[in-house]
């Protein structure tokens, strides 16, 4: 007899990995649902996946490169901006979609049982799919502009994974908080907008005056952006401390986010 025992939650709950693994199909179905739905009833369909970041890159290139004349590390402006936006859109998309996911799936949370963590996690699926489409387009740009990424590209999966973990950890916490405090819905976009301008996405880090440099140096996104530029644009490798931290910090944020989520999860059905 397969026995399930239900008892009051203890003081400290650690995410149940086995249960999450059991629910992996939910993850896939949710993800597939989002991907299917996003472009149903749109004229251009998948074209939007490429068009969105490309248009954004064009605008950023105009503003930061052509108007503000900020440096782009010797790389053609559009390619530089597109690479930065590739990482940024991944980060931004995961957090934005995850944070509102529990509240907008209220029915699921209050009526069916499955590990709730799957709801915010599953939202990253469609963002990751978008990422790969954009990535393919980046390679087209690299060929067009004749840029050889060099061996640094071998580590690009690591930096991609780290952006995902960092964003997912933050997204988990934001989604859990939003169940209780809807303020998070206003805080998240604002915080992300601040980060967008406080990270060297559309300009090289060398443009930052040294007195402000410390603000950039403590920002994990700065590290990861530089690693993206290293991987795809043949830029010099960042210092070793930065490489170590950009692996340690995202993993810590993700695990910490999952633990915090688990702590808050027990009350969801009663509060949402």
């Amino acid at each position: 007899m397969a026995n399930i025992v239900i008892t009051p939650p203890g003081r400290f709950a650690f995410p149940k990995v086995a249960q999450l693994w059991e629910g992996r199909e939910v993850l896939y179905r949710f993800g597939a649902r989002d991907v299917t739905l996003r472009y149903r009833q749109t004229l251009l369909g998948v074209v939007w996946v490429v068009l969105q970041p490309l248009l954004m890159a064009v605008i950023f290139t105009l503003v930061f490169q052509k108007v503000a004349h900020l440096p782009s590390a010797g790389v053609p402006g559009l390619v530089f901006v597109f690479t930065g936006l590739l990482a940024w859109n991944l980060f931004n998309g995961i957090i934005t979609r995850a944070s509102s996911s529990l509240v907008s799936n209220r029915d699921l949370v209050s009526k069916v049982f499955f590990p709730r963590m799957l709801v915010p996690l599953a939202t990253s699926y469609s963002t990751i799919v978008d990422f790969f489409v954009s990535l393919a387009f980046l390679f087209v740009l690299l060929v067009v502009y004749g840029i050889n990424p060099g061996v640094g590209i071998l580590l690009s999966p690591v930096w991609t994974a780290m952006v995902i973990l960092l964003a997912a950890g933050a997204g988990l916490v934001a989604s859990a908080l939003m169940v209780r405090y809807r303020d998070i819905a206003y805080v998240v976009p604002f915080a992300l907008q601040f980060l967008l301008y406080a990270s060297p996405i559309a300009y090289s880090i060398s443009a930052v005056p040294s007195k402000y440099r410390v603000i950039y140096d403590v920002n994990p996104l700065t590290w990861l952006l530089q690693e993206f530029q290293w991987a795809f644009l043949h830029q010099p490798a960042p210092p070793i401390w930065q490489i170590v931290l950009s692996i340690v910090v995202p993993i810590t944020v993700f695990v910490g986010g999952a633990v915090i989520f688990e702590q808050m999860e027990r009350g969801f059905a009663d509060v949402i």
Binding site: A2, N3, I6, T7, K111, V112
Partner: peptide, 22 residues
């Protein structure tokens, strides 16, 4: 159904629970 947690006590189930809550 494990949608909400009890405050006290214990439930033992002899198998999977299918929910048809709504």
């Amino acid at each position: 159904n494990r949608i909400t947690a009890p405050t006290k006590g214990r439930v033992e189930l002899g198998g999977r629970v299918g929910s048809l809550l709504e």
